[in-house]
Design a protein around this nucleic acid. Structure first.
Length: 460
RNA sequence: CGGGGCGUAGCUCAGCCUGGUAGAGCGCCAGCUUUGGGAGCUGGAAGUCGGAGGUUCGAAUCCUCUCGCCCCGACCA
């Protein structure tokens, strides 16, 4: 499969949840004018103000329609890139039996972060914080031969980790949506190839969401294994301090022609050769990058890839028949993306004083249509016509048909951050024009309705 | 889990020190006037003051317990 970078958005448009359009007068979009007291960081404040989420209890949120659309768009990109990299989607349950975790030894090791549940038959269950045990169990029950390798399986499922101190809204919740993939390979060389594929998929995934992401060599932590990279989104308000070569800012993985079936080792080496280190690993005295090329930035971790080796396959007695009939213990890898965290991370990376600035690929709607004079026949007629045309053209449009004042509508539209705003008012209509505003640059331009449509279609 | 803070209307908050029976702005509802960057006027609805117990003639206010939430730190997709 060949990825050249621009086929991305058709997939997003095809996501069924995000088909269609909406009138703001009927949409469930509870906007807040003021900052809720409980929200300190900007993404949390904006998600609450823009009516994307509401808190249920500490670190647990309901996703309202606007927020859910973004979440689904992110999922769609993640899914497309996982599929392209050769991973196959399945869906495992949220509630798991304790016995599998006793087998791996993690039932006792995982500690207080694991939400333990007892069912009516007094069986020990748990709400899954991750799925290595469950996927390994599925694998060993169903894969018996080396001929069936490699396998790379993923799902996008809610996880629960009973964090001592949840914070930052969805960036550090207790319940969160995660894409987790698990690979099984026959030997180290094959596992390394899979690792590289996922490494590429991750860079592409985050790039498609408009994020500058830097992979950094990471500790493997309690998950275990030998090789690991974290993917850090650069955002001024990020929670951790990172240092990297300024060349990262010019890097563009989407314009790099890479085939997943190629030998990805040169690609991997290229993308890990540039300096990048988290605060605890960075040593200013011995930094290989000269000061003028060193970027000191803030970052948010949105994904991590691990080579696990045979830690789980060994502990859980997994083997397949090898070419000579002898048992072979598969090599595993696991690969996580914080899907719900990405919603917050994208906002941290892309907002201004007025509100969110969505990258087009994840925006809940492609455009917002503002009727400045909802009671005026000419305005309403023009808006209705444009609304229909936009939607027929495949531009998901949120139509603000409310009887609010102009300023209130502008502020609301800026807050929710749709990439394009089309403003229809009596003044412009007299001249036969509407106003098109680019949310990101703030540039406003008058043009005919038809030109506005073409402008927005062209920008996708 | 250590340290700190906060729970009063949908949101932001005042009132608590010094006890006397519930307030403001925004939002919401109705009407009128407005209408190109969070409009104006008039009228209206809305809170068991987080919960329980205690002190008192009387508790949002004082005391005890409890629940929840937030922030800093240690820890994490």
């Amino acid at each position: 499969m060949r990825w050249t970078g621009d086929d991305a958005f058709s997939t997003v448009a095809a996501c069924p949840v995000n088909r269609g359009f909406m009138r703001l007068s009927t949409y469930f979009l509870p906007l807040l004018r003021e900052n809720p007291a409980e929200a300190q960081i900007v993404s949390h404040r904006l998600m609450l103000r823009a009516g994307m989420i509401r808190q249920s209890s500490a670190g647990i949120y309901s996703w309202l329609p606007l927020g859910l659309r973004v979440l689904r768009n992110i999922e769609t990109i993640v899914r497309a890139e996982q599929d392209a990299a050769g991973a196959q989607e399945l869906l495992m349950p949220t509630v798991q039996p304790a016995e599998l975790w006793r087998e791996s030894g993690r039932y006792d090791d995982y500690g207080e972060e694991m939400l333990r549940i007892r069912d009516r038959h007094e069986r020990d269950m748990l709400y899954g914080p991750t799925n290595e045990e469950l996927i390994t169990d599925i694998f060993r029950q169903n894969i018996k031969s080396y001929r069936d390798l490699p396998k790379n399986l993923y799902h996008i499922q809610w996880k629960f980790r009973d964090e001592v101190r949840p914070r930052f809204g969805v960036m550090r919740g207790r319940e969160f949506l995660m894409k987790d993939a698990y690979s099984f390979d026959l030997d180290l060389a094959a596992a390394r190839k899979t690792y590289n594929k996922m490494f590429l998929a991750y860079l592409r995934t985050f790039a498609r969401m408009g994020l500058k992401t830097v992979p950094m060599r990471a500790h493997t932590g309690p998950i275990g294994g030998d090789l690991s990279h974290e993917f850090i989104v650069l955002a001024d308000t990020g929670e951790s301090q990172v240092y990297c070569d300024k060349a990262w800012l010019e890097s563009d993985v989407l314009s790099t022609e890479v085939d997943y079936d190629d030998d990805l080792e040169p690609f991997f080496r290229q993308w890990t050769s540039l300096y990048a280190a988290t605060d605890e690993k960075h040593d200013a005295a011995n930094c290989p990058v000269p000061p003028d090329r060193l970027l000191s930035a803030r970052g948010i971790e949105v994904g991590q890839v691990f080579f696990l080796g045979n830690k789980y396959t060994k502990a859980m007695n997994v083997s397949v028949a090898g070419p000579n009939g002898e048992p072979v213990v598969p090599e595993m890898g696991c690969y996580g993306i914080g899907v719900s965290r990405l919603v917050g991370a994208i906002i941290e990376a892309s907002h201004d004083d007025a509100g969110i600035v969505w990258p087009a690929s994840v925006a809940p709607f492609g455009a917002g249509l503002i009727n400045l004079r909802a009671g005026d026949a000419a305005c309403t007629e023009a808006c209705e016509a444009l609304y229909t045309t936009l939607n027929k053209a495949g531009v998901d449009t949120l139509y603000d048909d409310r009887a609010e004042s102009a300023g209130a509508k502008f502020a609301a539209m800026d807050l929710i951050g749709l990439p394009w705003q089309i403003v229809v008012g009596p003044r412009g209509l007299q001249k036969g024009v509407v106003e098109v505003k680019d949310r990101k640059t703030g540039q406003r331009e008058e043009m005919t309705a038809e030109a506005a449509l073409n402008r927005i279609k062209a920008a996708r």
